[in-house]
Write a protein that binds this DNA or RNA. Structure first.
Lengths: 247, 247
DNA sequence: TTCTTCATCTCGAAA
DNA sequence: TTTCGAGGTGAAGAA
């Protein structure tokens, strides 16, 4: 077992195949300093809270962030096998010769316990991420596109408001058609399914009641495409569809 | 810059503050062997595909799994700041003196590029996670509970089928009430919102049409609780609610 | 706080 | 492959 550290300003602590006690010390120090903590090894995991469950023995990667978030990743997939959210407490101990890391969620209702029966690596890193994040191709971009060129929705369509409030919640785009009829537009950045139609329908009905007029409120689903079931539902409800890409 | 490795059967390679070339070699070896790869350092990130975007300079943790999944984690929150799914290719290179890791998603439509301008740690780990995952408190558990004690839904309720097919999709639980009327039950393991009511409504309407009878099909939403808006919608649609916890 | 909806949602199962 | 709904969904914005 060797401690391997080039000591670049105490920014890193890295142990390969450490003894549990040495690992616990590194983990405890990382938690105290607010470091990013990474532990790789064979472990079992238990969690409890909104639901409860466990992971049988397996080799995994535990990531603990300065805000208390803890993620247990297996060897595949994009989602952690187990996790607990930020805001809680994290502690480390050695129980029966095993390193044990325990984290609790914000309310304290959620808890996560990781017991390592073999340690491959422990690392503590003093990192801060203050970089900006930009994303293009979101629903917001689709909305901008529709507002810039309302004919994409339907020739003669005139947007009047975004996020217009109704008893059923805010509608993405509210406007009127060439004949002056009220129009509710629901935007989806991806292929739309039955849920999107249900949403649109709720807004249309809510707005009809809100305006308490006899005139019909039209509903238009705007998305790159829609599934067959979604199109059937649109037809049944007398709603329309317009194909528009978010980019 | 030191290579620090206790050589526990070639299961670990760990470099603290490595030079880009040395890091590239470790990364390339990890990709070749199918190791779990972890890189910590200051980087910029760009992604493209379903959407596109970038992360400005920041210190982050890159995790690459044997299946090609790549996750870029910042110092807080539970979701990666950027990612690409499994199934694609991953490659490493040194460009303008910086380690660069590029990963593509399954279809090759998605791509993720991470350029490290400073390296804190590089680790390659030979791990496999074959542990079982068990979870209690899921919707399946709620269904079992309801089937074991149908009175939780409503006194006199009799379940007849689960996953019963309708033109709108499979119904969680199908049965009949004390008067022999058809009943559709929609289950939610947590507090139910408007979307759950929309789902239940679709199933009720689909089943009414499917049975093509004059008799009404009843709908009951079963969940620990429901939001006010959800309750209003239930009332408008003539649907019922039953409070049942998944555990 | 609760509520509502978006997400580069992810994931699994079924048609 | 596509569709559909669950998820211990998470996260953001508004009331």
């Amino acid at each position: 077992v060797t401690v391997s550290n080039d000591d670049p300003g105490d920014a890193v602590r890295s142990l390969v195949a450490p003894a549990p006690g040495a690992a616990r010390d590194v983990v405890a120090g990382a938690l105290e300093r607010g470091d990013l903590l990474a532990v790789v090894g064979r472990c079992t995991v238990a969690f409890d809270g909104r639901a409860s469950g466990e992971l049988g023995p397996g080799e995994r990667h535990l990531l603990v962030k300065p805000d208390g978030t803890a993620l247990v990743h297996g060897d595949d997939g994009q989602r952690p096998r187990a996790w607990v959210g930020p805001g809680g407490d994290v502690s480390a101990s050695v129980v029966a010769g095993d390193l044990r890391v325990r984290a609790t969620g914000d309310g304290g209702d959620d808890s996560l316990t990781v017991a390592f029966e073999a340690l491959v690596h422990v690392g503590a890193f003093d990192v801060t991420d203050d970089g900006e994040r930009t994303v293009a191709g979101t629903e917001a971009d689709l909305r901008e596109r529709v507002l810039a060129d309302p004919d994409l929705v339907e020739p003669g369509f005139t947007p009047l408001a975004t996020e217009r409030e109704t008893p059923a919640g805010p509608v993405d785009v509210y406007g009127e058609d060439r004949e002056g009829r009220a129009v509710v537009v629901e935007l989806k950045r991806r292929r739309a399914g039955p849920d999107a139609v249900g949403q649109l329908e709720r807004y249309v009905e809510a707005l009809e009641r809100d305006l308490h007029i006899e005139a019909v409120v039209r509903g238009i689903l705007v998305a790159p495409s829609a599934t067959d079931r979604a199109r059937e539902l649109l037809a049944e409800r007398g709603l329309a569809f317009a194909s528009v890409d978010p980019t």
